[in-house]
Amino acid sequence: MTPLFAAEGLELAYGQVPACRNISFHVEEGEVVTLIGANGAGKSTTLRAVAGALIPRAGSMRFHGRDITRLRPDERTNLGIALVPEGRHVFPFLTVRENLELGGFKFRKESTRVRTLIEQMFAMFPRLRARASQNAGTLSGGEQQMLVLGRAMMSEPRLLCLDEPSLGLAPLVVQDIFRTIRSINAAGTSVLLVEQNARYALETASRGYVLQTGSIIVSGSCSALKQDERVHQAYLGRAAVAAGSQVPVSP
């Protein structure tokens, strides 16, 4: 079976500065896959390439078996790839409702569908409903993260890419966000998760890839990765593993 998304031998660079070498990974239909690694390992760069914000120097990407390597970000969104960028990036001077509406831009000719989707997002994030007509820039960090998640889901993506969804959020809010990510996945959306918080990432995903200085060094099922000596020492640490067992997994 062809995977939902597959990247083959990606070479990524910012201008003349190389960032990632020979990156190959795939996401199966219905999976949560995580890319973990230290700051600057190339996780976000890889995700930018998946979304089309960075065109690779070499290598290819396929979505549903179709070659998407040279497609623009808007074309990929219309095919069913949604990216929640690092740092959230709400449209600060648009209202919460307008932000969601733009998330459903590809359905702009079907106004009932957009309204139904907005209702679904409000059901998933009741706090957004209360702030529907407020400018998105006035929301708290946690609320903004909910908004960008909802905004991405407005395009009914097959593959949801998340870049550091826990960044800068309080632990309780992070739990909330991860619970939502799991329920989004349970409803049938595949997820590609980039996360510095390796513990959360490995608890949420089924498979993972570990990046170090721009290359994938290990990959495998998350339960195997948790036992891997290198992952262990670099990202989890003994104390963290003990704490990790207390992370609530079920909603």
Partner: peptide, 21 residues
């Protein structure tokens, strides 16, 4: 929706592209 998209592009062009704009 086009007017809102125009405002979105003014506020954050890269993110607007992620919306399919």
């Amino acid at each position: 929706i086009l007017g809102k998209a125009l405002r979105a592009v003014s506020q954050d062009r890269e993110t607007a592209a992620l919306m399919g704009i």
